[in-house]
Design a protein around this nucleic acid. Structure first.
Length: 575
RNA sequence: GGGGCAGUAGCUCAGUUGGUUAGAGCCGACCGCUCAUAACGGUCUGGUCGGGGGUUCAAGUCCCUCCUGCCCUACCA
């Protein structure tokens, strides 16, 4: 990959006080899809994720568990590595803020900011609430009748505190930041978020307290042991640490910095879109090219919170619906940047109607016909008709359109673009009716099936970043060699070779059928069995074919109507 | 209080710089096909584009106003 264009993309480093949830999975997924896409498109990609392990909450959690902070974070950080592996993320590095390389990097950045006069020692004063671990301004507090002063927001008691603190001269960077946003209109996406940041900065910036003395778990401030660095200065620096900072002559730094995309949740946009570029400019370092703030998920229309107990565990989702199905849903259901709702019914509709019916069935019907009617090999096409040409043009035109959409993180649009071709392919199958051509004009049938196989190949190539496992299977069914799956092979360049032998195709996307009988066990004359899953269901009569597991280990099919009859007769009883 | 975003078919949403009969998917009805994972295709039903006012030859698309919902308004992350 030497010589190819570098592309550097990052997730935020995740705060280890939390168990990984759907939000973490979502951010990383978006990065993974971009990273995979760019690799297939010939870029030299660096995809970074990691964990943010400092701060008072971590220190407290560790104390509460009676372990030292380092062993505590070792454990929790591992959860995030495990999630990344489980979700199939292809991060090239995993950074932890407790690593030596990061301490060195943070202290070097601090030193640089100090030298440039952007950090000075002052005093932080304000109304501090121990319970909230937060300072409040005068008007955010109120005096109660009993004379105590409390924070309006939380009701926590506050006390006047003064502590020495280092400050970052953020106020000096207001105009430069505004000029920077002006010169880089796509630095903050989506647009609405950009407006928010702009109005925030225009509203005036105060200097930022960047050190703490109230706890110890953090990066020590150079030459002042009483202070540790403010967590965000610490955390944000990870993006350059991973490129080898402070060694800016380093090969990694030279190649990958500044980052192409920092993917973040909307809650941490400000830190990335205001503080981070200010820190970097103050340190005479180049600023990243884009910060993309995505939205949040709700669960069946409900806000997700620990207290409601409706936190979504990505591992549960994958176990229930399948990895590629979940990856597909998360980026398909909602325009990236908007908030979205995770609903079981929506998930099932997407995986059945789009994955199983539209795409899965398309490849199944086409490849079955090829295997059955073309001696099991990719057929040789004859002259193309206008319809054939139109079909192929759509398939071959996909890369350009999808690339443009992926470049601005419009994942759902990119998927829709591909699906238009999927639907067009199904329409084309019906119009051409190759099953009729089989008798009437076999040569014409061969051409149609070739056009279809070639279309499926292009669709599958482009869907690899989103659904790597399934598309590996689909491309395997087409006998596309591993080395022929990059986007360089999109279009005519990688056209299928007639004569290539194909195996009997297998379904790529199973349907998901809800049924009240699932997981129930019955016993009768012929022994007992458990209803494992629903294989097929007549959408009108709701008659269902179950796959059952007998206690002797054999797997059989059972009709729901037969089950009902047997239950009525008393031949079967539920266990 | 200040700033921003959104309100378009039953549901979820597209609708470029204002310009022919307002689109898609899902859902529903009907027809066709039978290669395929009881899948696919086609047709149809369905919208006073939140309310009101204005600019214009022409507005879902610009301006004003009102209503409704959401978000931001700094140092836990």
């Amino acid at each position: 990959m030497t010589g190819s264009t570098p592309f550097y993309i990052t997730t935020p480093i995740y705060y280890v006080n939390d168990k990984p949830h759907i939000g973490h999975a979502y951010t990383s997924l978006a990065c993974d899809v971009m990273a995979r896409f760019k690799r297939l498109d010939g870029y030299d990609v660096k995809f970074l994720t990691g964990t943010d392990e400092h701060g008072q909450k971590v220190e407290n959690s560790a104390n509460a568990k009676g372990v030292d902070p380092q062993s505590f974070t070792d454990g929790v950080s591992q959860n995030f590595r495990d999630l990344a592996a489980f979700m199939g993320y292809t991060n090239d590095d995993f950074i932890r803020t407790t690593e030596e390389r990061h301490m060195v990097s943070c202290q070097a950045l601090w030193q640089k900011l100090l030298e440039n006069g952007d950090i000075y020692l002052g005093a932080y004063e304000g109304w501090y609430a121990v319970r909230d671990e937060a300072f409040y301004t005068e008007d955010e507090t109120e005096k109660k009748p009993d004379g105590t002063r409390v924070a309006k927001a939380s009701g926590a008691e506050v006390a006047w505190m003064e502590e020495p603190s280092y400050f970052f001269r953020l106020s000096a960077w207001q105009d430069k930041l505004l000029a920077f946003y002006e010169a880089n209109p796509d630095f903050i996406l989506p647009k609405s978020r950009r407006n928010e940041v702009l109005s925030f900065v225009k509203g005036g910036l105060q200097d930022l307290s960047v050190s703490r003395t109230t706890f110890k778990w953090g990066v020590p401030v150079p030459n002042d042991d009483a202070h540790i660095m403010y967590v965000w200065l610490d955390a944000l620096t990870n993006y350059i640490t991973a490129c080898g900072y402070p060694d800016t002559n380093n090969e990694q730094y030279q190649k990958y910095w500044p980052a192409d995309v920092h993917m973040v949740g909307k809650d941490i946009l400000r830190f990335h879109a205001v503080y981070w570029p200010a820190f970097l400019m103050a340190a005479d370092l180049p600023t990243p090219k884009r910060v993309f703030a995505h939205g949040w998920w709700t669960n069946e229309g409900q806000k997700i919170s620990k207290s409601l107990g409706n936190v979504i565990d990505p591992i549960d989702l994958v176990n229930k619906y399948g990895l590629d199905q979940v990856r597909y849903f998360l980026l398909r259901e909602v325009p990236f940047g908007n908030d979205g709702d995770f609903a079981h019914s929506a998930m099932v509709t997407r995986m059945n109607s789009e994955l199983a019916n539209d795409l899965g069935n398309l490849s199944q019907r086409v490849l079955s016909m090829v295997v059955k009617n073309c001696d099991g090999v990719i057929p040789t096409p004859g002259d193309y008709t206008a319809e054939d040409r139109a079909m192929l043009d759509q398939a071959y035109g996909l890369l350009g359109k999808v690339r443009a959409q992926i470049d601005v993180q419009s994942f759902s649009d990119a998927i829709e673009t591909i699906w238009q071709v999927v639907r067009a392919s199904n329409a084309y199958v019906d119009q051409q009716a190759p099953w009729k051509l089989k008798k009437e004009d076999p040569a014409r049938m061969a051409t149609v099936l070739y056009v279809l196989a070639e279309t499926i190949r292009n669709i599958a190539l482009l869907l690899q970043p989103l659904m790597p496992t399934s598309m590996d299977k689909m491309l395997g069914l087409l006998e596309i060699a591993e080395g022929d799956r990059s986007f360089a092979f999109c279009g005519e360049a990688g056209a299928l070779k007639p004569g290539t032998a194909l195996e009997q195709p297998e379904g790529v996307f199973p349907r998901f059928i809800d049924h009240e009988e699932l997981d129930k066990s019955y016993t009768g004359d012929e022994g007992s069995f458990m209803i494992k899953r629903a294989l097929r269901q007549n959408p009108k009569t709701k008659e269902t074919v179950f796959e059952i597991l007998r206690d002797n280990g054999t797997v059989e099919e059972l009709l729901s109507t037969d089950l009902d009859k047997a239950k009525e007769k008393g031949a079967l009883t539920q266990v």
